[in-house]
Design a binder for these strands. Structure first.
Length: 500
RNA sequence: GCCGCCAUAGCUCAGUUGGUUAGAGCACCAGAUUGUGGAUCUGGGGGUCCCCCGUUCGAGCCGGGGUGGCGGUACCA
């Protein structure tokens, strides 16, 4: 090959932030999704799938005052020049679906959805540009009972997945309460909207930056280790203290705030209303038997900043793990959600209240591996039985054996490559084949097949030192009449499964 | 976006004060009687030393610029 030709070769690589998932991980992920699905269906939620692509305006993601889609959203133009975008979550598409089918849907409408979402952002460790979410939502109920139910369901799902009670907590807070606190320190009103955003973002960083970092962000600003400066909210010291004492010290004990929340919120009707809703959610959870070890009010929870209108939820894993440097680190959030009463209303005149919860599937998957949940750690992927090809002109015979096995419900395949027997064995090994079927001229003459157990063979290999011995021993294989192929293979597979 | 670090084989990395044909381990392929996975042994394939410009008799190495990757930070529905 000349250098010129070589240069033309396309480099085989996935775009950054996007990855392939192979058989083992797919199987484990599917087992995990099945568990979540069964819990959600138990709660009476029904399946829904919406397309990965939506009109950009339906997602509400045009840049302000520009007819160009927001950065961070993958977008392209249809042949009629309409903007289309890849969905960046599963909530906005649900709102579109409900609005579009409003008249025929039972209300409140409960549904769950699972699928990939896309974000055009800089990827990082554990952050991808395509990732999977699993959502459940109740549309058309303003009742705190709907919020409470979503939280209980999230708790049930985590436990069913193998996260022990005490290793997780569903934290709840309310955007109304947060707004009330900000009103109390004098940054209510339209003119302070930008500043409130900065405050919420600062609170959201509590777990990562700690109180001191957040204090800086609420005040003048903060300079991080890389030398980058983030401008702060410019609050007064008393205001900063109020925010921090609310977010940090404002832990509730069984429905009773540790400090005078209602006094603080006295000036703000929305704030007081938010607090009442929060306590009602908590009461409902308690009445259903969910203690503060599972569902509890936590004023530091902020969540997504755009469309939440009331209660917000966050599922946190509380057990400690260690990072690559050995430092103890908390796993953190594996899902979140809240009430978004305005979303469906973008499509319709009357407002439609809605609440939901979203699980970050790959993050949760990583967490389940850490806690050793059998749902994701069990059974390595098992490949098909491979029928080796020894005599090239007898392909039809081998194919018949494969068909026989498949007819008996056994996953099997014919070796389709061109290599010799040794390479075929390596192939079977790499496919994680449980067994291979060997029939050369000797066996053919006797009407027999050799059935070789690759799993038992690998065990036997440990005791054998030389290649000659290894070849001569032919460990873990036996011959069987060709007519009994399927039965004998089925039996060998059953034995293998028992020993696993 | 901002700041920092890095770039040599598929992967992890060596590479002398600037000196001929750029190396190792792992991975991959193959051995013999075309009938046996692993280990061992032997052999083999695989490189635009990220790109461009400059300095030099001579650059993987020095200088400048670019690109790409990684980490932090910001944004994140």
């Amino acid at each position: 090959m000349s250098g010129d030709e070589k240069k033309l070769k396309v480099e085989a690589r996935a775009p950054r932030g996007l990855g392939d998932r192979e058989a083992g991980e797919l199987a484990a992920t599917n087992r995990m999704l099945d568990v979540i699905r069964s819990v959600y269906e138990l709660y009476g939620f029904e399946a829904l799938e919406t397309p990965a692509i939506e009109y950009t305006d339906a997602l509400g993601k045009f840049l302000p005052d520009q007819d160009r889609p927001n950065e961070g959203v993958f977008s392209f133009q249809d042949d009629d020049e309409q903007w289309l975008s890849l969905r960046y979550d599963l909530t906005a598409p649900l709102a579109r679906f409900v609005a579009q089918n409003y008249d025929r849907l039972p209300k409140p409408y409960r549904s769950y959805r699972c699928g990939p979402v896309y974000r055009n952002e800089k990827p990082g460790p554990g952050r991808f540009r395509q990732f999977m979410q699993f959502d459940a939502d109740t549309v058309g109920s303003a009742s705190p009972a709907a919020d409470a139910e979503i939280c209980m369901m999230a708790a049930d799902a985590l436990e069913k997945l193998g996260v022990a009670r005490g290793d997780y907590v569903i934290k709840i807070n309310s955007r109304k309460v947060l707004d009330g606190v900000m009103e109390a320190i004098g940054i209510g009103g339209e003119e302070n909207a930008g500043r409130r955003l900065v405050v919420l973002r600062a609170i959201d960083k509590l777990d990562r930056l700690g109180p001191d970092g957040v204090r800086q962000l609420l005040g003048e600003g903060r300079k991080d280790e890389s030398g980058d400066f983030t401008k702060g909210a410019g609050l007064s010291l008393p205001a900063i203290d109020t925010i921090l004492s609310f977010s940090l010290g404002g832990q509730y004990e069984e429905g009773k705030p540790q400090f005078d929340l209602f006094g603080l919120l006295g000036k703000s009707e929305t704030g007081a209303q938010g607090a009442r809703e929060l306590m009602e959610i908590e009461d409902l959870a308690r009445d259903a038997g969910y203690g503060s070890d599972r569902i509890r009010i936590d004023p530091s929870v902020v969540r997504g900043l755009e469309y939440y209108t009331g209660p917000v939820f966050e599922a946190d894993l509380t057990f400690e793990t260690r990072d690559e440097k050995g430092h103890p680190v908390r796993f953190g959030s594996v899902g979140g959600g809240g009430r978004y009463d305005g979303l469906v209303g973008r499509f319709r005149n009357e407002n439609t209240p809605a609440t939901g919860f979203s699980i970050g599937v790959s993050r949760l998957f990583a967490a389940l591996k850490l806690v050793g949940s059998p749902i994701v750690t069990a059974q390595p992927h098992v490949g098909p039985v491979v029928v080796l090809v020894l005599d090239r002109d007898r392909l039809a015979d081998y194919q018949r054996m494969v068909a026989q096995l498949r007819g008996a419900g056994i996953a099997a395949e014919l070796y389709l490559g061109a290599a010799g027997m040794k390479a075929q064995m390596k192939y079977a090994d790499r496919r994680r084949a449980p067994l291979v079927i060997i029939q050369g001229s000797d066996e053919k003459a006797k009407g027999e097949v050799q059935i070789k157990d690759l799993v038992a063979g690998a065990r036997a290999a440990a005791a054998i030192a030389t290649n000659e011995e290894w070849k001569a021993a032919r460990p873990a294989q036996f011959s069987a009449p060709e007519s009994e192929l399927a039965e004998q293979v089925a039996q060998a597979l059953a034995v293998q499964r028992e020993q696993a």
